[in-house]
Write a protein that binds this DNA or RNA. Structure first.
Lengths: 200, 200
DNA sequence: ACCTGAACACCGTTCAAGT
DNA sequence: ACCTGAACACCGTTCAAGT
């Protein structure tokens, strides 16, 4: 063995990330290990360390892809919305559906973020930031008299709120039943928040 | 060795939970292991398994104690509040301060919840439920015309929102700076939400 | 240059055996 | 009855050695 050259570095990289995503999908983060990924793609553990700094780095890239997929979902649904309020409600619906459908992958984004306190690369921060841009756009349409920093804060308050309901629902900490209720709660949050925000 | 009887079962149990809390405080969940707990309390790993079902069970009890401490903090601050709106804002402040001060322990509550999907014991659910009761009480005072189920939903929407901002701030996912901002955002969330909720 | 295989220092969990 | 010690089946990570 050694010197096989069956796959390019980029191919191995892609295979590894795909394998990791599949394992997380099926077994959650606890089911993931470098050895399992390696076995899945037909290489040795050592090979993974030629491509990724370590397992945390690999998971960081998995999470980057998850955020990318969410962003695609969010941006594909926001063109034909009549008004900005409806658009925001629709964004929240999409957000929650994504989190529910990709539940295991979605949880990893935040579990992993919580544990490793190394500085996050800029490409990652950018993807998180993109998720707020659409919200800010709609909010500034609904409240044109607000300053940019007020809009920025509002987007973070409101979307942090949507996220919180979503995560608590996903982890069964809200004493509610499933997605349908999570959806009801976010709609209530957004409607009431907007009532206060646009009036104030 | 064997048959030492230096400590009662309950004493060992308490020592183990305390040791686990200290390790989590200092190194986070990743720094925790059964072997380290055992070493810290001067017993063998095997002993831990005579008292706890497994490490997940031990962590569950650590989390139960964390929730209990939060509840004490929350209930100690809510006596003299003039009106219910101020009381809710104060509750959120206390909540965020607790999460920030006990950051490592607080994260474990939700990381662990996210990974193990075994049914949670009722004593745990009760502690989570207690956290919502105070919120419900204040909300029903502010909006006496709402039905109990509307109040319940509102409490979950609003507090899920507070929680979301709190967690995103703690994990650096909000592009804001620290606790102060998390506090500003929750105050904004609560104020605007209440404006809509009490008017509707 | 590319990849392996074996090593190192860890894990969680179990359970026969010691007192 | 209470606790140990050693075992089992796993980990992440590194790196000399093979082709």
């Amino acid at each position: 063995m050694a010197r096989r050259n069956d796959h390019s570095r980029d191919e191995i990289r892609e295979m590894a990330l795909k394998a990791a995503e599949t394992i997380i999908l099926e077994k959650g983060k606890d089911g993931l290990s470098a050895r399992k990924i390696a076995q899945e793609i037909g290489y040795t553990v050592g090979t993974l360390y030629l491509i990724f700094k370590n397992l945390d780095d690999l998971i960081l890239h998995v999470n980057g892809r998850t955020l990318e997929r969410l962003y695609e979902k969010l941006s594909s649904e926001q063109q034909s919305s009549s008004d900005s309020k409806t658009a925001l409600l629709q964004l929240a619906k999409t957000y929650i559906n994504f989190a529910e459908n990709e539940s295991n992958r979605w949880k990893v984004v935040f579990e992993h973020r919580a544990q490793t306190d190394n500085t996050t690369p800029e490409w990652y921060q950018e993807r998180v930031g993109k998720m707020f841009t659409a919200v800010e756009t709609h909010l500034s349409r609904l409240a044109p008299h607000k300053s940019p920093s007020e809009i920025k804060d509002a987007a973070r308050a409101l979307w942090g709120g949507v996220h919180g309901i979503c995560m608590l629902a996903l982890t069964d900490n809200l004493d509610i039943t499933g997605v349908e209720s999570a959806d009801t709660l976010t709609q209530s949050l957004i409607n009431n928040y907007l009532a206060g925000f646009t009036a104030g």
